[in-house]
């Protein structure tokens, strides 16, 4: 059962540099939350703190609390590995494992963790995940071929299948369509619509039309200037954000007056 994500007083640093300042937000379960804003405003950085992926970058750290199911993922004793098993992530550039077949890519979450799985269970999981990513019909006859042989849009859906195969509760997407053509983008947007039945989705996008198409709620990040920290300016229902935003900055950004 997906739970709300509650973020309180979150400050994100790269070394001594405060990159994102004081984020307070509640992300609703089984919904799509889009994050928009100009480049460098910290939306991807914020997204990566939701599953502690930002820690991969040397010197990056976060202060504050991020609660999933009432549990603070930044509390002492919480292993980021366990957080990431519950909060999956899809990246900007499709990144299937080049040494693995399509089938093994889907099973990567299971196999890389050295977990045992029977062949029939594995087959069922592969089929379910690929169907969940709307890719099954395109690849069912070549599951043993390398994942890198697929087109960019197919690779990205393969990465989504790989993510949902580990049954996370939350799926984070960092500009998942920015490297894709309009047709593949449409396929992924349709998929996001279906996925919110089961998952809580947070998506970062530069494309405001995409935000308005796929999301239930939209958050707007902005930055006062170079070297200043990014801030969450406003978050509200997508419809309200795009028709009648409360904040002047949001209105300026959405209407294309800057950024």
């Amino acid at each position: 059962m997906p739970q709300a994500i509650t973020v309180e007083d979150l400050n994100i640093y790269y070394g001594d540099f405060l990159a994102v300042e004081n984020v307070n937000v509640v992300i609703e379960p089984r919904s799509v939350t889009a994050l928009i804003g100009p480049s460098g405003c910290g939306k991807s950085t914020f997204l990566r703190t939701l599953n502690r992926m930002h820690e991969v970058i040397p010197g990056a750290r976060a202060e504050g609390t991020v609660e999933i199911e009432g549990q603070n993922i930044y509390a002492a004793g919480v292993d980021p590995v366990n957080v990431r098993r519950r909060v999956g992530m899809v990246f900007q550039k499709p990144n299937p494992f080049p040494t693995m077949s399509i089938r093994d890519n889907v099973l990567a979450g299971v196999k890389l963790n050295n977990k045992r799985i029977s062949k029939s269970d594995a087959d069922a999981l592969v089929e379910k995940s690929l169907k969940g990513a709307n890719l099954w019909n395109e690849v069912k006859d070549r599951l043993d071929k390398p994942g890198m042989g697929l087109s960019g849009g197919q690779q990205q859906r393969l990465c989504i299948a790989r993510t949902i195969a580990v049954r996370p509760e939350v799926v984070l997407m960092d500009e998942p369509c920015s490297a894709l053509d309009p047709i593949s983008t449409l396929a992924i947007e349709d998929l996001i619509h279906e996925m919110k039945e089961e998952f809580t989705i947070v998506i970062v996008t530069h494309n405001m039309q995409q935000a308005s198409r796929v999301s239930d709620r939209t958050g707007f990040f902005n930055i006062a200037g170079t070297g200043k920290p990014g801030k969450l300016i406003e978050i509200d229902d997508t419809e309200k954000m795009f028709t009648n935003p409360a904040n002047k900055q949001t209105e300026d950004y959405i209407s294309g007056r800057f950024g």
């Binding site: 990246f91 494992f97 963790n113």
Partner: peptide, 25 residues
């Protein structure tokens, strides 16, 4: 780096990522 991140995001620990993804690639 993408591949390491992809592996971490699946909840694979660092040492397994190194053995199964980095060294394998």
């Amino acid at each position: 780096m993408d591949l390491r991140e992809a592996s971490y995001a699946l909840g694979v620990p660092k040492w397994l990522t190194i053995v199964r993804v980095v060294l394998r690639t």
